[in-house]
Amino acid sequence: MSGIALSRLAQERKAWRKDHPFGFVAVPTKNPDGTMNLMNWECAIPGKKGTPWEGGLFKLRMLFKDDYPSSPPKCKFEPPLFHPNVYPSGTVCLSILEEDKDWRPAITIKQILLGIQELLNEPNIQDPAQAEAYTIYCQNRVEYEKRVRAQAKKFAPS
């Protein structure tokens, strides 16, 4: 494992614990031996107030490669969400998460999670990743928002 990646992720964890947006979660997972795995984080993004996503808490896994922060983490909703920019596998399609697009090593975990929260309610229809959600979003916004509200209710924190 890269010392650069681990040191950056340790800084990220410290900064997150000191200050993070209300309702968001970002925690490194534990290895079988109980030690912390900084390369694999369990996160959760709350649906934004005043949107059909409100009330939901959407679980996301963030996986970092050894060359982080040169390369972005892979962000994957578990379980996958109904959304035009979420692949059926759950992987998020967002330009700041793509090395050859808008990724920059200075982007923080907090910025990534806030960017994904923004994307939930403002899909990028130029870059669809899920045919069904994309089609319904474009053709029947009322039905799309109904499905999103049902999903938010399903993923409401207990």
Rank of each mutant, 00 (worst) to 15 (best):
S2N: 08
I4E: 12
I4M: 13
A5C: 15
A5G: 14
L6R: 05
S7Y: 07
S7W: 08
R8G: 02
L9Q: 03
A10G: 08
Q11I: 14
Q11P: 11
E12W: 05
E12C: 00
R13A: 03
R13V: 01
R13L: 05
R13C: 01
K14Q: 04
K14H: 05
A15K: 14
A15P: 01
A15M: 06
W16R: 01
W16I: 03
W16Q: 04
R17L: 02
D19R: 04
D19M: 08
D19N: 07
D19P: 05
H20I: 05
H20S: 01
H20E: 02
P21Q: 00
G23I: 03
G23K: 08
V25W: 07
V25D: 10
V25I: 15
A26L: 09
A26R: 03
A26Y: 01
A26P: 00
V27I: 12
P28Q: 04
P28R: 08
T29I: 10
T29L: 14
K30E: 07
K30D: 06
K30A: 09
N31H: 11
N31C: 11
N31V: 06
P32N: 13
P32H: 12
P32I: 13
P32T: 13
D33N: 07
G34V: 05
G34F: 04
G34I: 06
T35C: 02
T35L: 02
T35M: 05
T35N: 03
M36P: 02
N37P: 03
N37H: 12
N37G: 12
L38Y: 13
N40K: 11
E42P: 03
E42M: 07
A44D: 07
A44T: 09
A44S: 08
A44P: 00
I45N: 04
I45Q: 03
I45Y: 06
P46M: 05
G47A: 03
G47S: 01
K48D: 03
K49Y: 09
K49A: 13
G50S: 12
T51G: 07
T51F: 05
P52G: 14
W53E: 04
W53Q: 03
E54G: 11
E54P: 01
G55H: 13
G56P: 09
G56C: 00
F58D: 06
F58P: 06
K59I: 10
K59G: 08
L60R: 05
R61L: 11
R61K: 13
R61P: 09
L63C: 06
L63Q: 14
K65D: 05
K65L: 14
D67G: 14
D67V: 09
D67F: 15
Y68F: 09
P69L: 03
S70Y: 12
S71R: 08
S71A: 15
P72S: 10
P72K: 05
P73E: 02
K74Y: 15
K74I: 15
P79M: 13
P80R: 11
L81D: 02
L81N: 00
L81W: 02
F82D: 02
F82K: 01
N85E: 06
N85L: 00
N85R: 04
N85Q: 02
Y87F: 14
Y87I: 08
P88E: 15
S89W: 09
S89F: 12
G90W: 01
G90N: 02
T91S: 15
T91A: 15
T91C: 15
T91P: 14
V92A: 10
C93K: 03
C93G: 03
L94H: 00
L94I: 05
L94G: 00
L94S: 08
S95W: 07
S95N: 14
I96K: 04
I96C: 03
I96P: 01
L97V: 14
E98I: 15
E98D: 15
E99Y: 14
E99P: 12
D100I: 15
K101F: 11
K101W: 08
K101C: 14
K101R: 13
K101V: 13
K101D: 14
W103P: 00
W103E: 00
R104M: 03
A106C: 10
A106L: 08
A106K: 00
A106M: 00
I107S: 13
I107F: 11
T108R: 15
T108I: 15
T108D: 10
I109D: 03
I109N: 02
K110V: 10
K110Q: 08
Q111F: 14
Q111G: 15
Q111P: 15
Q111S: 15
I112M: 15
I112T: 15
L114R: 09
L114E: 11
I116N: 00
I116V: 13
I116F: 07
Q117N: 10
E118H: 12
E118D: 13
L119R: 01
L119M: 10
L119H: 07
L120T: 07
N121M: 12
N121K: 10
E122P: 02
E122S: 11
E122D: 13
P123C: 04
P123M: 01
N124D: 01
N124S: 06
N124W: 09
I125Y: 02
I125G: 02
Q126C: 13
P128C: 08
A129T: 02
A129F: 00
Q130V: 05
A131E: 09
E132Y: 07
A133K: 04
Y134G: 05
Y134K: 04
I136F: 13
I136K: 08
I136L: 10
I136G: 02
Y137P: 01
Y137K: 06
C138E: 15
N140V: 01
R141P: 13
R141I: 11
V142E: 15
V142P: 14
V142L: 12
K146R: 12
R147N: 05
R147C: 11
V148E: 03
V148R: 02
R149A: 06
R149F: 09
R149C: 05
A150N: 12
A150I: 14
A152K: 02
A152M: 05
K153A: 15
F155M: 05
A156H: 12
P157C: 10
P157L: 08
P157H: 10
P157K: 15
P157Q: 13
S158W: 11
